[in-house]
Each structure stands twice: as C-alpha cells, then as structure tokens.
Design a protein around this nucleic acid. Structure first.
Length: 289
DNA sequence: ACGGATTCCTGATGGC
DNA sequence: TGCCATCAGGAATCCG
C-alpha cells in the first residue's frame, strides 16, 4: 500500500529511468484508470519531455514540458495515485501488457527513437492517473485540498491542525486534507511510538503529546524511506525491488504478538473504520498530560 | 459542518 | 479439491 515513504522511493527509483526522456505514445487499457486529461495527451505525446519525477503526499508526479518547449518549467503534470495495488515499472520495448496492466507510456530519446515503456499496473483498479496543465492543477479538488507535507511540518502548525478537532486522532492523520501522505501503516506506527491511543480525540491531546506524535510521524517516515518503504505484498519500487521497513513494524500486522516495549499482547481493533493494532498498556485510552 | 458508514475491486486466505 | 465468505484498503460519496 504505497504511502508517503513508498511513493517517495518510487519517485527516487523512477527518476533516473525516465527523466530527460520523451513521451512518444500512450495506451490506455482500462479507461477508468486514466481518470482525467486524456484529451490533453496529443499535447505531450509525442514529444513531451519528462523534466522531473516528484511526490506530493501519496501522489507520484511526472513533470512534463510540452513540445516544442525547451524550458525547464513544466507545462503539464501527469499524476499517479497508486492506492493499494498500483505499480510503476519501466520495461524494455519487448515487454507486453499483462492481465493487470492498465496503461502504457512509450518513452523515446530526444530524436524520437523508442527506448522503453512505462507500465502502470494495478490489480484492484483503484489507482488512477490524470494529465493536467500545470496551471490547472489547483482546479483538481483533491490537489487543492491536500494538507502540508508531514516531514516539513512545524509542531505549532500540527497542533493548530489537530488540537481543536473532536475527531479521533487516527482519523485526523488519515485525512489527506489535514496532513498529506500518511496511511494506515504509519498512522498505527506513529501512534504506538508516541504512546497515544488512536481513538483519542485530537482535542483531548496535550500540546506535548501532539509534539511527540509529530516527532514519531517524522521518525517513522524517515526510517521507512531509509529502508525503501514497506512491502506487505504488492508494493515494489520502480526497479521491482521490495522495501524492508515491514521488518521493523512494531504494531502493524502484529496483533497477538508481544509488544516490543512491555511484552503484553498487541490488540487488533477498528478505529476510524480501519483495522488498527495497538498496545493496550503502552497506549492507554486516556492519556492525561 | 462533521463524523461515521458504505462503496469500489480483486486476490489471498480460511473454514468446511 | 473446490466452493463460499471474509478481509484488505484510499478516498469519494452518502447519510444522520
């Protein structure tokens, strides 16, 4: 399930394979996967240059310059949301689509000579891509509402966002309009590390607790990026390699196993409609001060 | 306005 | 062996 660290890893491994190359053609095998902007494809293929690969929240972004532009400023953005099972790979020209291939982007060198193919595969078909003019990005509601990046978020801003809300803190962390990029795995891991019960209303947490929670979020995201993300089953980076952070999970997927801190059995429950694992001893339901 | 439940989709898994 | 029910999960949408 690509969350922030996984998408960051994909961006880093994809960039050297596609940056500086040119879009030659696109084939959409499942129409709903190309959620918007198909009519713009003739503007960037053939001849659109891939300037850069980046990430915003859980979105993977290909920054494109439409021909004949030679500027460094992107004119178009091709955004991918991988949801749970989306994958991005670059294959050679001989590669053929398979059962779960949803879209293929042909890549060429500066002379238009075909070089490789970017595959967007997605088993459960929840993932999507969309092509937009860069200046129209703000018209995309999901983009416009995205909250700040957690890795550069200041504690006082995090407190302002969460401390006045009655919603369960885990629901707040999963809300992409409040903070962008956190999913079920890192929400559970961060709550555990900061000793906070995920069902605690944001408004019931003290400023110090929220500072600790943000520190835990940033630590777990940074550590996961260093391990190239978490591979539960589907996630691979753009080189096809699995991440290793799943080996360092303290709660996610570990219900019934002993807590690494206190030895009590970790408990599985549902918070904010999501499967949640926590330590009842280290994450008490009420956590004063 | 806000939180909670439902929906989409397929493959893995477990019970019988 | 095979059939069915259950589960996983991001975020849009519906509902109270």
């Amino acid at each position: 399930m690509p969350e922030l660290p996984e998408v960051e890893t994909i961006a880093r491994t994809l960039a050297p394979q596609v940056a500086g190359r040119f879009l030659a053609d696109a084939r959409v095998l499942l129409p709903k996967t190309f959620a918007a902007g198909r009519e713009l494809l003739p503007r960037v293929a053939p001849g659109g240059k891939i300037l850069n690969v980046s990430r915003r929240g859980k979105l993977l972004l290909l920054e494109l310059a439409a021909p004949p532009s030679e500027t460094k400023a992107p004119t178009h953005i091709l955004a991918f949301h991988l949801k749970m099972t989306g994958r991005i790979f670059v294959h050679d020209l001989a590669a053929e689509p398979h059962k779960h291939t949803r879209a293929i982007f042909d890549l060429a060198d500066e002379n238009g000579v075909p070089e490789s193919r970017l595959f967007f595969d997605d088993v459960r078909t929840f993932g999507y891509c969309r092509l937009m003019r860069r200046i129209d990005l703000a018209d995309w509601p999901f983009w416009a509402k995205l909250g700040p990046e957690p890795l550069t978020l200041e504690a006082e801003d995090f407190i302002r966002i969460t401390a006045s809300r009655r919603g369960k803190i885990k629901a707040l962390l999963l809300d992409q309009s409040l903070v962008a990029g956190i999913g079920n795995i890192y929400a559970d891991e961060a709550c555990f590390r900061s000793g906070i019960h995920p069902a605690t209303p944001g408004a019931d947490l003290s400023p110090n607790q929220l500072r600790r929670l943000l520190q835990s979020i940033q630590a777990v995201l940074r550590e996961s990026i260093a391990e190239c993300g978490s591979s539960i089953r589907d996630y691979r980076d753009a080189n096809g390699d699995a991440g290793a952070f799943q080996n360092l999970f303290r709660v996610y997927g570990r219900a019934g196993m002993p807590c690494a801190t206190c030895g009590n059995a970790l408990k599985k429950c549902v918070v904010a409609g999501r499967t949640t694992v926590l330590c009842p001893h280290c994450q008490p339901t009420r956590n004063p001060s």
